[in-house]
Amino acid sequence: MTFAFEIPLLVLLILTAASAMLVKDLVSSVFILGSYSFFLALVWAWLGAVDVAFVEAVVGAGLATVLFLLTLFGTNPKDTRLRRPPTPWAAIVGLPLLGLLLMYGANGLPEFGDPASPASTHVSPVYLANSLKDTLTPNVVTSVLMDYRSFDTLIETAVIFTAGVACALLLRRDQG
């Protein structure tokens, strides 16, 4: 196994997530969340998912942070101070049990980077082999997103439009 710099990346990812969990101040928590998104983008670039890494770097680290900060600036600072009640015993017992269950199920999944895993042998070779011939598009992600599976994308676009309208209905209803 050659995990020279992959393991430090994953450790950084988990460390930023843990500090976003433990930090007391909400504004610093939001900024740590932005750095978490950036490390996630690095991990995806390492996995070969450049399009996903690009979207995460722009959307997760950029737009999501702006949305969180705008909400925080609309509130009083005394309301964003965190109260720390005692952790319920159900969480202490239940979450490790859930983790053990998930890790037990990990045994049945394909190994990391396995070229013969079921996900990589079913339909994706067809897309890879035909994208350039069918649509003149070298970026297979774009051709699958916009051509082979464009109906899916149409509905996702409708979801985004609906989210924008819902925000306006919630917060701007008493204005002209």
Binding site: L63, V66, L67, L70, T71, G74, T135, T137, T142, S143, M146, D147, S150, T153, T157, I160, F161, A163, G164, C167, A168, L170, L171, R172
Partner: peptide, 24 residues
Amino acid sequence: GIVLTQIGVALDVAVTGVSIVFSL
């Protein structure tokens, strides 16, 4: 067709992003 629909998606996403920020 891919070019035209990409422009449509970009317009939708851009306007929705600005609209959510205005709302918040």
